[in-house]
Nucleic acid binder design. Structure first.
Length: 589
RNA sequence: GCGGGCGUAGCUCAAUGGUAGAGUUCCAGUCUUCCAAACUGGCCACGCGGGUUCGAUUCCCGCCGCCCGCUCCA
């Protein structure tokens, strides 16, 4: 699993990130803080580029997606409706003997006789330990085995010649307090709340408790009706949002991969329930083959929409320089799916520390909007004129068939979330009647990506080393960050060939002044030309131009031209200064 | 949260119970005709806090952080 070589690569990447100003540890001068990372000058540009590309791909270049920018702290009821208050708060217990960790509520219940000990004493040194311990034995097993386990426990605490103290027994029925594997007592269940808590208002009282959002998505659901009414969009359409989210991870690991403060890029794409599609178009289209299904059609059911977004997202990754060979698709198995999800595809990237998730594309049915409808008491349904018109033209058999299926789907949701049977049936019936009038709660496809993970993937993918040997036989290794020009932090480096020739310097500065209004450009006249190229290679700058004597007209036919040097192969070509901006724009867009 | 390893310039690595040294990077300068050239000068470090000691970067303890494993990952 953890080849030393992969570790070394990760260490090099972390080191380069710091050296070149991509990523620093947060609060480093105070010793750092676990799970928090800052982006330096190059990292900030890289991240901005990635977010802007996502934003324009997902919203500006599409007719059917609009944006939202919601607050990080929202009404705490949102997190009850979404389920985060419950599922983010798992009680945990550790085995006192082996330190193995358990979800307290998922420990297999056991019965038998518990042997309690108040402590132990070393019969030779006289040293005493007063930690309490207990072992559960199945009924009928000899007490000796409990004493043996307890002896191990006290040996770990530094005693050698164990004399157990205060043994007493107790009958235990269906207890979850003992390790099923060895009978050892577990620690008291301790809550692990993964949501960061804070207080709104000056008084830190229970009433003021609020949470930093653990995902950006819920705001989209909470604002769904407002966006629908003000954006002139109709289902199917999407709402996109990027922003910070916070999770108090048990173990932040792998550099920035699992951070406690991180940024997400999420789309909630709302679609009609399959029953509505069927009524309107006569039948529901389902996936025919793997790969991109093409431009959306009115008869697409949720499965085609899901496949469409998986392929759109992979296309996006390819477009910013993550080849398909570095990615993996993982279709979650039915038993792995969250209870509300119908399907979920993870897009994974082959990180040096393992193949890990970049983005999840979940088909979440109408779960989220339904939850907010129940918890807020506000309708999350939409009215669909097309559906009402089409419904009127159906024959009675079809009406009753579709109606029944919609009723069953709604009933299934309502009973699953714990609505009492009689009320669930009544509500599901109302929902089915609503469908006949053109009303439904939209279903949703959710492509949800982690910005920081993507940055790390781009950095890992770009990292490459070039070893060259000079004529003295001394070899050295240089790092080249092969970012796609679209995401590269600096697009162009501009150098005067010589620093001490004022006219060359002035010309280079002139080019810099003109290009920097259009793209991230960097002027450098420090050190030898080769050193400047090497510095830009480490920053991942795809192109560098150099102003030389020919630019100034030493060879008249080359007047006002510059050399442009390619990062990945060192190749150079000559271009008129006037064409430079256009040449670059064509490559960084 | 548990167990193991680690913590010296930005980076790579030394030495030491008695005021920390090199290479490289970086900055300034001389010199320059396209891939980390040379020379000169300069900046910069014992993670933090206790303890032992006349004196601690070195020994001990605690904390913090990083790496690995366990656990967790809606």
């Amino acid at each position: 699993m953890s080849e030393p070589k992969e570790n070394v690569l990760m260490e090099k990447i972390v080191s380069l990130c710091k050296r070149r100003g991509f990523v620093y540890q947060s609060s480093e001068i105070y010793g750092g803080i676990q799970g928090f990372w800052d982006y330096g000058p190059l990292g900030a540009e890289l991240k901005r580029n990635v977010k802007e590309l996502w934003w324009s791909t997902m919203t500006r270049l599409r007719d059917d997606v609009v944006g939202l920018e919601a607050t990080i702290i929202m009404a705490p009821q949102i997190w009850r409706a979404s389920g985060h208050v419950d599922t983010f708060c798992d009680p945990m217990s550790d085995c006192l003997l082996t330190k193995k960790r358990f979800r307290s509520d998922q420990v297999e219940a056991q019965s038998g006789v518990a042997y309690h000990y108040a402590g132990a004493r070393d019969s030779v040194s006289g040293k005493q330990v007063t930690d309490a311990f207990a072992v559960l034995l199945p009924a009928g097993k000899p007490p000796e085995s409990a004493r043996k386990t307890a002896t191990q426990f006290y040996q770990q605490r530094g005693l050698e010649n164990i004399e157990l103290l205060g043994e007493r027994t107790e009958k235990v029925e269906n207890s979850q307090r003992f390790n099923p594997e060895n009978g050892s007592l577990l620690t008291e269940p301790r809550p692990f709340n993964l949501m960061f808590k804070t207080y709104v208002g000056p008084v830190e009282s229970e009433d003021g408790i609020a949470y930093l959002r653990p995902e950006t998505a819920q705001a989209i659901f909470a604002q769904f009706k407002n966006v629908l009414e003000t954006s002139r969009q109709k289902v199917p359409f999407g709402i996109a949002q990027t922003g910070k989210a916070f999770r108090n991870e048990v173990t932040p690991r792998n550099f920035t991969f699992r951070s406690r403060e991180f940024e997400q890029m999420e789309l909630e794409f709302f679609i009609k329930p399959d029953e509505a599609v069927e009524v309107i178009t006569g039948s529901v289209a389902t996936p025919k083959r793997a790969g991109h299904p093409g431009e959306p059609e009115a008869n697409w059911g949720w499965q085609l929409w899901h496949q469409y977004w998986v392929e759109e997202r992979i296309k996006f990754y390819e477009g910013i320089g993550l080849p398909r060979t570095t990615l993996e698709e993982y279709w979650q198995k039915p038993e792995e799916l969250a209870h509300y999800a119908r399907a979920c595809v993870d897009i994974l990237f082959k990180f040096p520390f393992g193949t890990q998730e970049l983005e999840g594309i979940a088909a979440r049915s109408d779960f989220d909007l339904s939850q907010h409808e129940r918890f807020s008491g506000k309708s999350m349904g939409v009215f669909d004129e097309e559906l009402r018109t089409a419904w009127a033209k159906l024959d009675d058999a079809k009406k009753s068939d579709v109606s029944k299926r919609y009723y069953e789907a709604r009933l299934k949701y309502l009973t699953k979330v714990g609505v009492e049977q009689a009320k669930a049936e009544k509500d599901a019936k109302e929902d089915a009647e609503g469908l006949a009038k053109g009303q439904y709660i939209p279903h949703v496809i959710e492509p949800s990506a982690g910005v920081d993970r993507l940055i790390l993937a781009l950095v890992a993918n770009a990292y490459s080393e070039v070893t060259s040997t000079d004529d003295k036989g001394k070899s050295e290794t240089r790092v080249v960050m092969k970012f796609h020009p679209r995401v590269a932090p600096i697009k162009i480096g501009i150098f005067p060939l010589l620093k001490n020739k004022p006219e060359i310097v002035a010309k280079a500065k002139e080019i810099f002044a003109s290009l920097r209004t259009q793209m991230m450009a960097f002027y450098d006249d420090g050190g030898a030309i080769g050193r400047r190229y090497a510095r830009q290679d480490e920053a991942g700058t795809p192109y560098c131009v150099t102003v030389d004597f020919d630019t100034m007209g030493e060879k008249p036919e080359l007047l006002n031209t510059v050399t442009i040097r390619h990062r990945d192969d060192g190749r150079q070509e000559r271009l008129p200064i006037a064409e430079l901006a256009g040449w670059l724009q064509a490559r960084i867009r």
